[in-house]
Simulated assay, not measured.
Amino acid sequence: MTQQPVDADWSRVRLHVVTGKGGTGKSTVAAALALGLASQGKQVLLCEVEGRQGIARMFDVDPLPYAERRIATGLRVGDRSPGVVHALHIDAESALLEYLAMYYKLGRAGKALDRFGVVEFATTIAPGVRDVLLTGKVFEAVQRNSRNKGATRYDAVVLDAPPTGRITQFLNVSGELAGLAKVGPIKSQSDTMMTLFRSPRTAVHLVTVLEEMPVQETADGIADLQAARLPVGAVIVNQVRPRDISAADLDAARAGHLDAAGIARDLKEAGVDTGDGLVDGLVAEAHDHAERRALEDAQHAVVGGLGRPTYELPRLAGGVDLGGLYELAGFLKTQGLA
């Protein structure tokens, strides 16, 4: 049921920004995408900016410092050697200290400012400045240059970004700074970053589940991104339930036309005790499941009308552990996103 329009070519993309409404699993999808890209033999950096140490929990490693750290390898495909996934936890305070050291040669002086609370003040007084610092580190990872000697050059960077409701503001750093800094290095840096964020080398992927509110927020997010001239990537439908019941049986369950006597007979033949209202309970559960499926099918049609390449990831019965991440990475790779 995946939809892949002709323009679904991700080969030019260097920066994959993954967003989604809270609870849709955007961090899981970002991690799976990083693993999928690494399976192509690519060197991949997986970044997070929300301060939750979600990457460390998903990959079962120690909390990440403000430093790039190798955490996994990609899937092995044939004789090709898999690439490596590095991870980076970005916080605004550390990013500002690095910025001061890199552009103003304020090494120890910058740390002194940190002790006096100047850094925390600078990164909280103006949210636009904070976003420039966070996205600036991501930009540097994509655009590695002579200022960062000896650093790993990545084929792809995956950003576990803020939720859909804030993603346009987060990426549109030049617009957010318009009333704060009209000239100077911060303004110049934000304008330079926008050349990347608005280019074909960037794609903003939106994660949703088949529920009305997340799907509507995805539609609104696409409209906001397009209005800001930011490149919309794919829509990734997460936690899709298996479609292993026929349409006819679902219709019968919704209408209350299931053969309860036949169900009871089949259970008895299988040696199952049908006492204590078991059959009635099963019929009620079937009705609820059919109603849920009908709602999901309606939202699936809405997603199909968003005009974006669409990919699906299944709901994993055992939850998502490291093995589950690799399984989801395989689905993304098979469908062509990774």
Rank of each mutant, 00 (worst) to 15 (best):
G107E: 14
P231Y: 04
L177A: 00
R70N: 11
H287G: 13
R293W: 14
K149G: 13
I236Y: 01
D91S: 07
V204A: 02
G275C: 05
P65G: 13
V77I: 14
V18Q: 00
R265P: 07
A34M: 06
Q226M: 10
R70Q: 15
A317G: 13
G78D: 08
A72H: 07
E120C: 09
S199E: 06
L35W: 08
L88K: 04
R166P: 05
E211N: 12
E140D: 15
P200I: 02
G275T: 10
A161V: 01
A181F: 04
V209N: 12
R108E: 15
L196I: 01
L206W: 01
D7S: 14
G136A: 00
T274E: 08
I222T: 07
D60K: 13
V303W: 03
S39V: 12
H289K: 11
D266K: 13
V279N: 01
W10V: 01
D251T: 12
I186T: 05
E211I: 07
R57M: 06
A151N: 09
R69A: 11
K105F: 15
M102P: 08
V77M: 09
S190N: 08
G36S: 10
S146R: 14
P214E: 06
A126V: 07
D62Y: 08
E68H: 09
L180K: 00
G23L: 03
R144A: 15
V84L: 10
G179N: 00
T274Y: 01
D9T: 09
E176N: 12
G78E: 07
L88Q: 03
H289A: 14
E68I: 12
E176P: 08
F170T: 00
D249T: 15
A32E: 12
D60I: 03
P162K: 02
L45M: 05
K187P: 02
Y66K: 06
G41R: 09
V118G: 04
E120M: 14
S190D: 04
R315A: 10
A151D: 13
R52Q: 15
P127G: 05
A67I: 10
H300V: 10
V158M: 03
A290Y: 00
G221D: 04
V29I: 10
I167N: 06
L159V: 02
L278R: 04
A338P: 11
P309Q: 04
E291M: 12
E93P: 09
G179S: 02
A31I: 06
R254H: 01
R14A: 14
Q226K: 13
G20A: 04
D273P: 00
G336N: 02
P242N: 06
A253T: 03
D288R: 15
E296S: 12
I55V: 04
A270Q: 14
V215T: 07
L15Q: 08
Q335L: 03
T195F: 11
G36R: 07
L313H: 00
V6M: 14
